[in-house]
Simulated scan of single mutants.
Amino acid sequence: MSNSGVVKTEHAIDVAAGPRAVYDLVARAEDWPHLFPPTVHVETLDGGVRSERLRIWAFANGEVRTWTSRRTLDPEALRVTFRQEVSSAPVASMGGEWIVEAAPGGSRVVLLHDFTVVDDDPADREWVERAVDTNSSSELAALKAAAESLAAEPGTLLSFADHVDIAGTPEQVYDFLWQAGRWEERLPHVDRLVLTEPGENLQTVEMDTRAADGSVHTTKSVRVGFTPDRLVYKQVQVPPLMAAHTGRWTVRPTGDGVRATSHHTVVLRPERIRELLGPDATLDTARALVRGALGRNSTATLVLAKEAAERDGSR
């Protein structure tokens, strides 16, 4: 660490999983939203096996920021270096490295950062250092939990999709999905919804959703829009059975309309299954329950989007 100019930080953690498995989690940046609490979405802009450019949306001290980074991957040395190309103020420059090493019992992961702030402002420097410290600790803890739980039970990760074909335009369907402020009146399973828009093509949505058994679950999501064919989201407040939930809505043209698809990725919490679902419940029970509940709600939303688009189209 330095009192002026470049600030350098180092964080580390021991992981009870093999170095290659841990490195692979670090290398697959597209999986970060359901692995790392601060990360909302990662968009791959270009690149290949050894180098890639990413646009990242993530929390920094409670605020969602976005920046563009270039990463260099070294699978032989189990290292990933990164450098922001376009930073988000007050950061002037930011870079660092993930280092995965073999250690007794598994692996040791070291996360290095170096950064500067605009005009070397002391208050901004403290703000960024606090964000780096918070996010690094959170990401390393999450990496450890993910690597160890996936090594013990791969079935905790669940991904699936449902689609509906619609005789409408991409813009009609995207607008229905993006206009979450109207969901309380449009979607029967939504009891309450609070929408904020902290940035361009950025939303936070807090809502109470009613399940088939009548129970109500409160969730909070951050959503990033890519008009007119895709929006992605991450739940930052999830039901107790889940450790993470991310998803995306895609709208693809077909010969006579569009295919709207809801994609979900969920990380389950196996240690809560019997407590929440009963003494005879298993991981398969939890997977089926979550698949059914999320699939029903997303399909219901898509069916209503279909009705709205086709109703508008027939006028």
Rank of each mutant, 00 (worst) to 15 (best):
A60R: 13
V26N: 00
V6T: 13
L140I: 04
H217S: 10
D114L: 11
Y23F: 04
R182L: 13
S215F: 02
A305E: 02
T250F: 03
G105T: 05
G48T: 01
D284T: 15
S262E: 05
G292I: 03
L111F: 02
V238M: 05
E307V: 14
V6L: 07
V164G: 03
R53T: 14
A151N: 05
T219D: 05
A243C: 09
P19E: 01
A145R: 08
G18P: 13
K306D: 01
D229E: 11
V290N: 00
R315I: 15
A102T: 15
A141R: 02
A212N: 09
V132D: 01
K220L: 04
P38K: 02
R28T: 14
I166V: 06
A17P: 03
F59V: 10
K144R: 07
A309E: 03
A60P: 07
Q84R: 08
R210K: 10
Y233A: 14
A286H: 03
L276F: 01
G225M: 06
R311W: 09
P239L: 06
L202M: 07
V49G: 15
F160D: 03
A260C: 08
I13G: 05
M242S: 13
T196F: 04
L177V: 08
E30A: 14
L143Y: 01
G225S: 06
P75E: 00
F59T: 06
A288F: 02
D133M: 14
Q172Y: 02
L111G: 04
D74F: 06
E153H: 11
T81G: 11
A211K: 13
L112V: 09
G95P: 10
S159C: 13
V267Q: 04
